[in-house]
């Protein structure tokens, strides 16, 4: 297995570099200039020239690329052209935040999606099943950006005028923690953080949760028909054990593949959701950087995202082997 993981990582390297080079080219081709934020009549053209020189932006594109690549390979991600600080420092602040948000979302997606899928499969063709199918379809077709705004409008805004609305169901509209976070107890910090996670993680995850539910439902229905489920029942196992132990683990196999597929979606979704919820994560860093043509930052964030996606796929792969002994067997033999 270790050899397998190692091989997969090696295979990912050219892919990641391909992506980075492509992003570099696209950024260079796209109109715009990282120094545009300084364009103002009171900023003399010579000053802009000097800035470009200070940043090495006056060099030909291929030289810039080679320079960037060199420092990148030596572990230096460079300096943000617009924030004027080391990109590594920015990433160190942002990555954990994005991981927290997308991790929570991922948990939500799979916990809720799978639970709903199971309920639907077990109660196939019931009213509940139909209602959930319809609901999932509705949610699935909602863009996360719009959903985020709606959540804010309703659960963080309108409810302030609804007297009977319980305080616990009013959520903060944005940010990762309250202003007085530093002054809270450990438990207070935890609940505060959780409170702030609710809306963005729902906005980010709910449509994927809907599709996980659909996949789980059909996969579960497929599995429930299998002979070994009858065997399990014939043993006298309670239905709960039959479903949760014997059926679920098999039904999860195709779902795990989704994990690897959803992560890129999650990250790209995070871009908009982080903007809506003022979540200080990587998504916003890349969004701002692209807007301002801060190309070293774009490159670095792209790199991190690409690596995260590669790792996520690897995790999905490993999980797949954990759940399915047949895969494990094949890989070990190879």
């Amino acid at each position: 297995m270790t050899a397998y993981i190692f091989r997969r990582l090696l295979q990912a390297i050219p892919l990641v570099f391909g992506i980075l080079t492509l992003v570099f080219v696209i950024l260079q081709v796209a109109p715009g200039d990282p120094m545009a934020i300084y364009m103002h009549p009171s900023v003399a053209p010579e000053v802009l020239e000097q800035m470009r020189e200070n940043y090495g932006l006056d060099q030909p594109v291929h030289i810039q690329y080679v320079r960037w690549l060199k420092s990148f390979l030596s572990g230096d991600l460079g300096t943000s052209l617009t924030q004027n600080r080391p990109i590594a420092a920015i990433l160190a602040e942002r990555i954990p935040n994005t991981l927290l948000l997308s991790g929570t979302s991922l948990l939500l997606i799979f916990a809720i999606g799978i639970a709903i899928g199971i309920v639907q499969a077990v109660r196939q063709h019931s009213k509940l099943d139909h209602a959930l199918t319809l609901g999932a379809l509705f949610i699935y077709s909602m863009p996360s950006f719009w959903l985020g705004l709606m959540l804010i409008l309703i659960l963080a805004y309108r409810v302030h005028w609804v007297e009977w609305w319980p305080e616990a169901l009013k959520f903060p509209p944005s940010g990762m923690d309250s202003v007085n976070y530093d002054l809270l107890s450990t438990w207070g910090k935890f609940t505060d953080r959780l409170d702030h996670l609710v809306l963005p993680s729902i906005a980010l995850g709910v449509s994927s949760a809907a599709s996980v539910a659909r996949y789980t439902r059909s996969s579960m229905l497929e599995v429930i028909r299998q002979d070994y489920i009858r065997t399990a029942r014939a043993k006298g196992l309670p239905e709960r054990t039959v479903i949760l132990k014997h059926a679920l683990k098999n039904a999860l196999l195709p779902i795990i593949t989704l994990l690897g597929l959803y992560l890129p979606f999650l990250f790209s979704g995070a871009v908009l959701v982080e903007v809506v919820f003022a979540w200080p994560g990587m998504g916003r860093a890349i969004y701002d950087a692209i807007q301002q043509r801060d190309y070293p930052t774009v490159m670095a964030t792209t790199f991190v995202f690409a690596v995260m996606v590669v790792i996520a796929n690897l995790i999905a792969d490993i999980l797949y082997a954990v759940v399915d002994p047949r895969i494990r067997y094949e890989r070990e033999r190879r």
Partner: peptide, 15 residues
Amino acid sequence: SMIFQEPMTSLNPVW
């Protein structure tokens, strides 16, 4: 107890 026709599919592959 009962045993079934298809030994290939009557055992749960993941346990």
